[in-house]
Design a binder for these strands. Structure first.
Lengths: 194, 194
DNA sequence: CGATTCTTTGAAAACAGTCAATCTGTGTGG
DNA sequence: CCACACAGATTGACTGTTTTCAAAGAATCG
């Protein structure tokens, strides 16, 4: 599992960074592994998010619930994605989000402090953090544009282009929740394309 | 103007960083200043965004235009905000965004290369970048949640809470464009509260 | 002033949401 | 292996929020 993480780091940093044996060992000893069964929570609203999670295997979702109990998914995470409520991790305050497993999953976890220490001593991780943040910001930008300017149909097509692999893996109503439309509306959009 | 930037850096890094005289000089020599008249473009779609812009004074907006010519604002930037199309700056590709001044404005500009060089030699800037990225991601997260889950009324109230100072400074129809609702709808929402 | 730009208002239309019921597939326990 | 439960998909009829279109009023600026 840790090898997968190291490979991922090297791949993401595009040859601009290396990992020595010692660094690999340091990484391996800093992350703890956790398995989650389908439907099991990684984080529940009201709790403080303590770990950044790297997904080795499986699929998770992060979502918020409104006062009527309706769920709104803010993120999916499959292999090689990170998950966790950054705001709660950084501030130490209670999270507004829930994170649970949509499939049986395997994660590697690291605390805020652990990650900071690690980043200090491993340049590759420093770089990785920058790259991930950068990509995250750009992706968010695009998602915001989609959310405020696209029709239900356009939102679906955009999702299809952006995350083609996710479609077959996620139940329809969760994609709807991610897009900010109802399952019925999404279903009608999809029906059109057959 | 450069002093303002330095003060801002120290303030944002919350005492965790310092700036020597040499570093201040280096910063001053790395940014170039630019003034923009109201309505003047800082970036037009199709062009490559070359600079990160730090706003010393004034107010700008970043927006995309759809095929029907409708505008969707993805960001406002007032004093002490950064603006620029990160995607275009990073990739060197044509931007899909426009950026123009809503008021007469003063910016400090720096190229991608300039910023990278500067960051390497000034730890405070390295830290600043991390903090800004972090805050940006959290703010985006919140905005996405608002966009996919709130009604027109809730969107407005959320904006009011998040950016209370902006309200008086921005024309109503631009706030509507930022929220992803029509100016008529926003106007009706506001009328309710009087 | 005249000319934009911005706001306000009304009426009609469209899109998406809600409610409710049925259908499908899947998996689990007896 | 069947029966049942459960999660998810599908469909129809209705409702409602928001958009669209159009026009008229403020406000601002050169």
């Amino acid at each position: 599992m840790h090898d997968m993480l190291c490979d991922y780091i090297l791949q993401k940093t595009e040859g601009k960074a290396t990992l020595s044996k010692k660094e690999r060992q340091l990484i391996a000893s800093s992350f703890i592994s956790r398995t989650l069964k389908k439907k099991q929570y990684f984080l529940q609203e009201g709790d403080v998010s303590l770990y950044h999670g790297y997904v080795c295997k499986g699929c998770l979702r992060m979502y918020r619930r409104d006062d009527k109990g309706q769920e709104f998914i803010s993120q999916f995470a499959t292999e090689n994605w990170w998950i966790g409520d950054r705001e709660s991790i950084a501030s130490g305050k209670a999270s507004k989000y829930n994170i649970d497993a949509l499939e049986d999953s395997e994660l590697l976890l690291i605390t805020k402090a652990g990650f900071e220490t690690l980043t200090q001593s491993i340049p590759a991780l420093q770089l990785l953090t920058q790259i991930i943040s950068h990509n995250n910001i750009i992706a968010s930008q695009n998602r915001i544009h989609a959310a405020i300017s696209y029709s239900a149909e356009e939102k679906y097509l955009d999702f299809l282009c952006t995350y083609p692999d996710m479609i077959e893996r996620l139940p329809q109503h969760m994609i709807a929740s991610y897009l900010g439309i109802t399952r019925e509306t999404l279903n009608r959009v999809i029906k059109q394309f057959k």
